[in-house]
Simulated scan of single mutants.
Amino acid sequence: MSGFSKYRDRFLEDWYHTNGKAYFLIICLLYFASFFLKRLFVIDSIAAFEILEQRGEMWLMDLFFGLQYLSVPLFLAWKFSLTAFVLWVGCFMFGYRITYAQIWKLVLVMELVFIVPELLKTLWLVVLANDPDYFEVMAFYPLSLMHFFDYSQIPSSWHYPLKALNLFELVYWALLALGIFWVSGKKLKISVTIVATSYVLFFLLWLGYYVVVYR
């Protein structure tokens, strides 16, 4: 146990000195790359956009996708800050002395989980999908509950929640619990409870709110 404690202390010492800004930049660049690949190999091949390109009317969609790139850093900063705050409150309620900065950096690194489905989405649509239209592209999310429904037969307010409930989100919850357990050095069971009663609860309430408001 003493060996484990020494290894953990050494890891945390390195963790405190890692450059959070560099990690944030890397995450943003990975999202930029995934969006660019999707635009290059999927969006540009959709028939409707090819027609717009021929008519010289594609500039509006170019503007839309350009704004999407610009919004990535703002969205991620907001997401990381809110998620870290919710988890920090959860840790505080259970008496775990973890700083907000530690949790923010933890959330930042765990975001790598969501880069995987973005890349898988592009791969699936390029290799396996049969000439998808724009709405099929927007409704698709790998290993999500949306696979069990026909997106055209359900209200649009359910599209986002069904995509948000996916295997990668579950992995994210587990990694958050393991991260809090590792950083705090406390019991894993309590770390799981903290994540379940703070982030997971907040996430599910947000999905319920979304369905009610946007129906």
Rank of each mutant, 00 (worst) to 15 (best):
S81I: 12
Y172Q: 07
L178I: 13
F135E: 14
W15F: 13
E50A: 12
L112W: 05
G179N: 12
K121S: 03
F114N: 01
I154P: 03
I43D: 02
L120F: 05
K6N: 15
L178F: 15
F65V: 15
F65N: 14
V126G: 03
R215L: 04
F94R: 11
F202Y: 09
H147P: 02
R10W: 14
S81V: 08
I154V: 13
A84S: 13
S184H: 06
L162N: 10
H159N: 08
W206I: 02
W15N: 08
V212H: 05
E111W: 11
W173E: 01
V89I: 14
S152A: 14
A177S: 14
T18L: 13
I180L: 14
L40Q: 11
L70G: 02
D133N: 15
L143C: 15
L82I: 14
L205Y: 01
S157P: 00
V109Q: 09
F41P: 02
V109L: 15
K79E: 12
F64Q: 12
F41T: 02
I154C: 11
V113A: 08
S81C: 03
S157C: 11
R215Y: 06
I115M: 01
G56K: 05
W206E: 12
F65S: 13
E57A: 09
L74A: 13
V137R: 03
L170P: 03
D150Y: 15
M58E: 06
Y199N: 05
R10A: 11
V113F: 09
N166C: 02
L123H: 05
D9R: 15
R97G: 09
S81A: 14
S81Y: 10
V89F: 00
F64W: 10
P161M: 08
F24R: 06
Y96M: 11
L12H: 02
F114V: 07
